[in-house]
Design a protein around this nucleic acid. Structure first.
Lengths: 246, 246
DNA sequence: CGACTTCTTGAGGAGACTCAAGGGTGGTGG
DNA sequence: CCACCACCCTTGAGTCTCCTCAAGAAGTCG
């Protein structure tokens, strides 16, 4: 993978060995560049591929029964994109660029080979998938019962946490290349209503969202409002296959 | 695992070899029996375990920010339960019995060992996780934009599909041990409203839900209403690690 | 045959939606 | 350097879905 400084997201759970990282780089395809707003691959495409986001932000979206789009996940550099579609013949989600992006594709066959030859990476990929499922579960819970203000509060906190994962020095004010229309599709409300919700969060002195810059004014208050569960991720589970395994 | 006739859900993707099945049976714990309504393990429990549901129906639930419960998934015999919690120190979801159930626990360490020694099973587990993530994604999309009637219609079709997976001979009328309160927590609406929605579906001659028996009256009409995407699952991907791998 | 759970019905209210128009902001080209 | 245009954000008014609260009917189990 071209950019040596990039952090592959697998390291969220356990850092990679040199030979493991080398294996990932060996199977990665050439860099693909995409302008903001462009679709990397549409929902329904046959024989979907896997992608690693090298730089920029992207999003996975899915079409809702009503026809509008639902944003499932924001992808940041180092994220693997397209894992869920591995279980299907057609791509499950559409991947669009939120900023100009650079991605590398992976052949599905490489994943199979990886399960045989690099069980530790496979297990880490597996754990990441469990984490993503959990984040979706939280979204389902929030969308089922929580009001729009709570949902948006939760999304802002989750964005903050994810941005901090990439840059631990992030303070209470940070940039996100997300427009209100996208926040709306993320929260499952209309753009118009998102706007009113943001104004309410501002009036309650919890968050200030302006020009793609989020400023968290009262983190405890925001947490209390969002009501997100506190969980601690396993970092390097002792049951992972041995690091030295070839 | 005690009951020889049970179908392990992994076979949804590719049938298991004898030695693979033997490995699963070897690490399974003793049978645990639970009465209807009892909690197998609560959300937040430390060092969560993995479980295989041998018989009966169960559900994974999560507490929503508003305090009410959200039903994430209905588990049927052969399902692995608790996979998402592997990525955390605390259990992510509560598992409750919808009927009297029998479960077997699995130590987490066995999963790690399995990635090293049985890559094919590991890859199948991985695929199942992707499928579950996709189902949650569909739920998010439905909850974000679809009305209550559509959501319930979609849930009924999904239940039908899953019951058919266990018993392909299932017709348009089938039994589900689910009360309206549970359907409400599944759809993210109130019990009162579920009742009215079911009446509407009945009035429109689409479905009849009575006494835990669902009768689909007009499947095409129901599908049109629900607007679920049509997807085909990979059955035995050619990129899976070799079946003969030890 | 009771006691409990589950389902059903009604009336009133709140949150979010739709439709529609106006105001900013940044980018591009003259 | 300014003018224009496209995109994004903001505001208002009216409507509808779904919720809340509350009570009563039916079903289920010992």
């Amino acid at each position: 993978v071209s950019d040596g400084t990039e952090t592959v997201r697998l390291e969220a759970f356990a850092s990679l060995q040199d030979h493991e990282r080398g294996m990932l780089e060996a199977v990665a395809g050439p860099a693909i560049r995409l302008a903001r707003g462009k679709t990397l691959r549409p929902e329904g495409e046959r024989d979907p591929q896997l992608y690693l986001l090298a730089s920029g932000w992207a999003a996975s979206t899915i079409r809702s029964p009503a026809g509008s789009r639902q944003l499932l996940k924001i992808h940041m550099p180092g994220d693997m994109m397209g894992l869920p579609s591995l279980a299907y013949h057609e791509a499950v989600d559409t991947i669009v660029a939120l900023t100009p992006i650079v991605v590398h594709s992976f052949p599905s066959a490489a994943i199979g080979a990886m399960f045989a030859s690099h069980p530790r990476i496979a297990a880490l990929l597996f754990l990441i998938s469990q984490e993503e499922r959990t984040m979706l579960a939280d979204r389902v819970a929030a969308m089922g019962r929580a009001g729009a203000v709570q949902r948006v509060a939760a999304l802002i906190l989750q964005l903050h946490a994810r941005v901090m994962r990439h840059d631990p020095a992030t303070g209470d004010s940070f940039h996100v290349p997300i427009r209100q229309a996208e926040l709306a599709d993320l929260a499952g409300i209309t753009t118009v209503h998102v706007n009113r919700v943001l104004q309410e969060l501002r009036a309650r002195e919890l968050v200030h969202w302006s020009r793609q810059t989020i400023t968290i004014l009262d983190q405890p208050g925001l947490r209390a409002l969002a009501g997100l569960p506190e969980r601690t991720m396993v970092s390097e589970p002792d049951w992972l296959p041995d690091r030295s395994a070839a």
